[in-house]
Amino acid sequence: MPLQQLLGIWIAAGLTLAIYSFLYKDNPAYKFAEHIYVGITAGYALCTAWYNVIEPNLISELLKANWHNPFTALIMTWTVIAPALLGILMFSRFFSKASWVSRIPIAFVIGAGAGISVPNTVQAYLIKHTSATFAPLIPKEAIAWSNIMDFINPLIVVLGVISVLIYFFFSIEQKNGLKTVSWIGIIFLMIFFGASFGYTVMGRVSLVIGRVRFLITDWFPLITNLLGLGS
């Protein structure tokens, strides 16, 4: 096994155990590992931002232009210089007297984002999902009695969507019939939350499986080899 891999496995195992030591109680080993994690993630993010965005989409574009003729070069590259300047303006947040300047790039991102999202959300969710809720109520072909659930399920979906939406609708007092429908909505939500809980358990456990598998299959053999117990 190459030395760098060997060293890597020992370090990874040590850090894994340091994090798991938190399960016993909070301790310096956990805090040490936790701060390494934050530091390394921040360092990673900075390098990725440079190599994946700033260098290819900004610096390279600037270097492509012929700067011997600055006027032409500026015209050629203003579409990258302008957002870069806006980006730099964001740093004004760290200076209390000039922090208002950062509102301009924020306004650009928020304004464009809001404008782009409205029609797309209407299309992708409001229209599509409303239609997908009601369309199955009218089957394209005749349903056999043996497949009676194909008829019942769309009805359950419609009932579920409407009742949950009514439950969310707080603008009027919910009493009598509305209260009953709202209660049905709660039942649908409980089923969803229960199912989500089941899947959340599944997801979180898979992470433990991954780490324990690493300790058992990658790290333990190194210990046994070190102690001379390996085959």
Binding site: A124, K128, H129, S131, A132, V157, F192, A195, S196, Y199, T200, M202, G203, R204, S206, I209
Partner: peptide
């Protein structure tokens, strides 16, 4: 997707915006 995210993808599956879901380790 992770199992945590999987239940959230079913409406899009029924609306035919996605063709399938591979949920978690299962």
């Amino acid at each position: 997707c992770t199992a945590v995210m999987a239940p959230g993808n079913y409406p899009s599956l029924q609306a035919k915006q996605i063709t399938g879901i591979i949920g978690g380790l299962k």
